[in-house]
Simulated scan of single mutants.
Amino acid sequence: MSELKLVVFDVDGTLVDSQGDIVAAMGAAFASVGAPAPTRADVLSIVGLSLEIAIPRLAPQCSAAEHTHMVATYRDSYASLRAKSVISETSPLYPGARSAIEALHARPHTLLGVATGKSRRGLDVLMEGHDLGHFFVTRQVCDFHPSKPHPAMLQAALAEAGVGPEQAIMIGDTSFDMEMARSAGVAAIGVSWGYHAVESLALADRVIHDFAELLPAIDQIWNVAYE
């Protein structure tokens, strides 16, 4: 049996707080078709879903053609906001995120990955801005998979890393992350600082409230000890 283990992170609401740009880009998308902007709470409730699923859920009154236009406007607006800003200011890492990533990366036989509702373009810009790319051996994005909570992203990450589901853990802040992990047969750790209420993380094996709790939670799930 392979000794390799895989820890897969969600991005928005888990590693970075990007809600400002997400809400602004969604506002631009709605304005492009003359629809009233959704509330911040409503926008954050769909973070993690692909835009093709999220926007119709937020704007059921709009037509399919309008949804398509809104998706394109959101992507362009989000990219424009990114180009005009400093990522460390508009999408800062949550406290302790980098230290946790570095500590996991330093562990023998432990691989790191990402499974996110972001596009490849959005994820690449974020990774470059925070100098995180070299930590992750697999990066799964919405461009090539069904939206969460479908397990396709996690299944692809497992295959790419050469790790079985029993040797993997998903870290995320939404019910979509927890449902995706369960569907893929992967353990799940929910984080309380993200965009979904803690009550929605009922499928998690553990819920943590600070990145300092992450490594101990992982070790408890895998029942391993590190010096």
Rank of each mutant, 00 (worst) to 15 (best):
M1E: 09
L4P: 04
K5S: 08
V8T: 12
F9R: 08
D10V: 14
D12M: 09
D12C: 07
G13L: 07
V16C: 04
D17M: 08
I22R: 03
I22D: 05
V23G: 01
A25L: 08
M26T: 11
G27C: 01
A29G: 09
F30T: 11
S32P: 00
A35W: 00
A35Q: 02
A35F: 05
T39I: 08
T39V: 06
R40S: 00
D42G: 06
V43F: 02
L44T: 09
L44E: 01
I46Y: 05
I46M: 02
I46V: 14
G48P: 00
L49F: 06
S50G: 14
E52W: 09
I53N: 14
I53K: 10
A54Q: 04
A54C: 13
P56W: 00
P56K: 02
L58T: 06
L58V: 14
A59Y: 00
H69C: 12
M70D: 08
M70S: 08
A72C: 12
Y74H: 07
R75I: 10
D76V: 07
S77T: 14
L81G: 10
R82S: 14
E89K: 05
S91K: 10
G96D: 05
A97E: 06
A106L: 03
R107Q: 14
P108H: 05
T110K: 06
G117N: 00
G117Y: 00
S119G: 08
S119C: 11
L123F: 04
D124P: 15
V125D: 12
V125W: 09
L126I: 12
H130G: 10
Q140F: 08
F144T: 15
P146F: 08
S147V: 09
P151C: 11
M153L: 07
M153C: 00
E160R: 01
A161F: 02
G162N: 12
G162W: 01
G164W: 01
A168P: 03
A168N: 05
D173T: 04
D173I: 13
T174W: 00
F176G: 03
M178T: 07
M180W: 05
M180K: 01
R182P: 13
A187L: 03
A187W: 09
G190Y: 00
S192A: 13
S192C: 09
G194D: 06
V198L: 06
L201N: 06
A202I: 10
D205G: 03
I208H: 11
E213L: 13
D219Y: 05
W222P: 14
W222S: 13
E227S: 14
